[in-house]
Design a protein around this nucleic acid. Structure first.
Lengths: 203, 203, 203, 203
DNA sequence: TATGAATGAGTATTCATTCAT
DNA sequence: AATGAATGAATACTCATTCAT
C-alpha cells in the first residue's frame, strides 16, 4: 500500500514536472516562431513540431491559439517585471533610483533579447487581445511610486506617468532595434541615452 | 462632332482615372485591413471585397501581396514626409524650427490616424520587406539638418540622430496610442510633451 | 482480458490498414483522374472527392501533387515489372522465352488497362519528374539478359536494346490504343503481331 | 473611285496578310508553350504574351483554347503529310518506296523537332479532342497504297495496316526520344533501325 | 495525459474568357 | 480587327482545430 502511494505521489510529481516542462516548451516554441515570422508565421503545427509535442497536446494546455499567445504575453510581462524590479532598492535618492530601474530595463533588453522582441511585437500590434495588454504603468508600479516621490520633492516634472514613460523608458526599445546605426550600444552611448531620459523627466 | 471628341477624350481620361481610383481603393482597403487585423487578417479576398474588386484584379496592379504592402508603405511614408515637411520653414531659430516639425508630426498622427497606425505597425513588424524600410532619418532629412545646425550653435546635444529621434519624435506615436490614459491630448498635455522632447535634446 | 488485448491489437492493425487503404484510394483516384483528363484535369480537390477524403488529407501522405504522381508512377511501374516477370522462366529456348515475356506484357495491357494507360501517359509527357522515369530497359532487365543470350547464340540481331525494344515491345501499347481499328485483339491478330515483333529482332 | 478600290484591296490584302501572320504567331506560340509545359503550362495569357497579341485577340481567331489546340494539331498533321509525301515517288520497287517514306518520316522528326514533339504529345494524351485525332493511316494514304501493292506482289505481310504501322513507322518516334541512349542517331544505327522495320513487315 | 490522423474552411495566386472601347 | 482591363471560378496548398484511441 505504502509503496504504491509513494509511487503514485512521485509519479504524479513527475507528471506535473513533465507537464510544466511541456507547457514551457510550448511557450518557448511560440516565442521563437512569433519572433521570426510574426503571428502569421507561427502556425500551431510548426509550434508543435518545434516543441516536440503533438498539435493536439497544445490544446490540453491552451484553449486556442489566441489563448496561447495571450498567456505567453502575460508570462513574459511577468518575467520583465521580475527582472526589472526584483533587485530594485527604493530607499535611495531619486536620480539613483531612476537610473537603477532604467539600467535594469536596458539589461532586460540585452539579456532577454528574445523576450524583449516578443513584447515589442505584441505591444505594437494586436496579436494579443486588448484585455491582456494592461497599461504599461501597471507592471511598472515601483517606477510610478518613484515618480510620485520625485514630484513631491520637486525633482520630477508634474506630468502624467504615461508621458514620463514615453520619454524615458519607451525609447530604449527603439534604441535596441537601431543597433545597426549605433553599433553595439557601448558605455558612452548609454550614458548619453540615459542623460536624455533624465533630462526629459527632471524639472 | 467636337463635342463627341471631347466626350471621347474625357472618357479616356475617365478610364485612366478609374484605374488610379481602383488602385487607390485597393490601397485604402489594405490599409484598413492591416490596421484592424495585421498582415494575417488582411487576406487578399477580404481586401478585394472591401475595395469592391475581384481578387484577380488586385494582381493587375500588384505583383503579389508583399508587393502591395510594400508599395502601400512607400506611399504612406511619402504622405508622412509631405505632410511634415511641406510647410516647414528652415530659416527660423532652432527651437522654433524644431517645434514646427514636432507639431507637424503630431498633426500627422491626429489627422491621418489610419496612416499613422499603419506606419506604426509596419515599423514594428516584418510585414514590409527590409529594403523598403528606409532608416527613419532618411525621410526626416530636414530634421537631421536642423540638429546639425543646433549642434553647431551649441544648443543641441552632440549625440547621434538616432538617439535624438528616439527621445523626441518616437515617443509621440506612443502617446497617441495611449489616449485612453490621457484623454484627448489637449493643449496643456501637448505643451508638457513638447517640453519633455525639447529638454531631452537641448544641451 | 485476453480477448480485450486481442481486440486492441486487431483494432490497431485495422487502424494501420485503414491508412494504407486510404493511400491506395488516393492512388486509385489519381490514376483515374490522370487517365481521363491528364495532369491538368487531375486537380487535388477532384482527386480528394473521388477518393472520399479531404484535400488536406492527401498532404498527410504526399508532400505535394508532383510527389503524389511520382510515387504513383513508381508504384505502377513496379506492378508492371511484377506482372511481366514474376512468372517468367529463363531456362527455355530464346524464342519461347521472348514469347513468354511478350505475352505477359500483352496481358498486363489487357488486364491492367488503367495502369497501362497511365504508364503510357507518363512515358510520353512531363507529368512525372525526370529522375523517376528510369530508362525502360532498367525494369526490363530479364529481357535485356535474354537478348544478350540470343545475340551470343546468333539468333538475335546485334543492335542496341533500345532499338530492339522499340520494335518489339513498344508497338504493343500502340496496338492496344488502336482497338477501334482492330476490334478486340483476337488470337490471329495477336499471332501476326507477335510474328512482326519476332521478325524485326531475329537475325 | 479606282484609287480608293486599289487602296482598299491592297489594304485588305495587307490586313489579311497581317491576320494570317497573327494567326501563325499564335500557332507558333502555342506549339512552344505546349512543348515546354504541356497543356497545363500553356495558358492563354502566356501564349498571348509570346505571340505578342492581346489575350482577347486569340478569341478572334479561335473559339476557345480547345479549338486553338485542335486546329494547331490539324495544321501540324498537314505539315507532316506534306513533308513526308510531297517528294514521294510511287513508281519504284516496293522496298525502295518504303525506304523513301521511312526516311522522310525520319527527316520530319529531325528537321521539325518541335512539330514532331507536339504531335507526339497530342497522340499520347487527350489534349486534342478525339474527333480531330484521325486515325494515323488516314494521312498516310500513300503508305497504305504501297502496302496494298506490296501485298499483291507477295512481298508484304497480309496483316492490317495498323499493325504494319505499329511495327515500322511508330517506333521511329520512340527512337528519336531515346537519343540519350543511342547518341546522335548516326548512319549505322539508322540502317539497323530500318532493317528492323523492314523485317517486321516483309513476308 | 497525450497523440497521429483527419478535415472544412481558408490562403495566395492563376486561369480561360468577356467586355467596353 | 484589336485590345487592356476585368473577373468568377478554379488551382495547389495550409491552418486551427477535433477526434478516436
Amino acid at each position: 500500500m505504502k509503496e504504491k502511494k509513494v509511487e503514485n505521489s512521485s509519479s504524479r510529481t513527475l507528471k506535473l514536472q513533465k507537464s510544466i516542462d511541456k507547457k514551457n516548451r510550448i511557450f518557448e516554441a511560440t516565442l521563437s516562431m512569433v519572433n521570426s515570422g510574426g503571428f502569421q508565421g507561427a502556425s500551431m503545427s510548426k509550434i508543435a513540431k518545434l516543441a516536440e509535442v503533438s498539435p493536439a497536446t497544445i490544446y490540453l494546455y491552451f484553449e486556442h491559439k489566441q489563448d496561447l499567445v495571450n498567456q505567453l504575453y502575460f508570462e513574459v510581462q511577468s518575467q520583465y517585471a521580475e527582472m526589472v524590479y526584483s533587485g530594485y532598492e527604493a530607499n535611495q535618492p531619486i536620480k539613483k533610483c531612476f537610473q537603477m530601474i532604467w539600467e535594469y530595463v536596458l539589461r532586460f533588453h540585452r539579456e532577454h533579447e528574445k523576450e524583449a522582441t516578443f513584447l515589442w511585437q505584441c505591444d505594437h500590434t494586436n496579436i494579443v487581445d486588448a484585455e491582456y495588454k494592461s497599461d504599461h504603468m501597471k507592471y511598472n508600479q515601483p517606477l510610478s511610486e518613484l515618480w510620485r516621490r520625485g514630484q513631491d520633492e520637486g525633482i520630477i516634472k508634474e506630468i502624467p506617468d504615461t508621458i514620463l514613460y514615453a520619454y524615458t523608458i519607451y525609447p530604449l526599445a527603439f534604441l535596441m532595434r537601431s543597433q545597426a546605426d549605433l553599433g553595439e550600444l557601448d558605455e558612452p552611448v548609454i550614458k548619453e541615452a540615459f542623460k536624455a531620459a533624465w533630462d526629459s523627466s527632471k524639472v
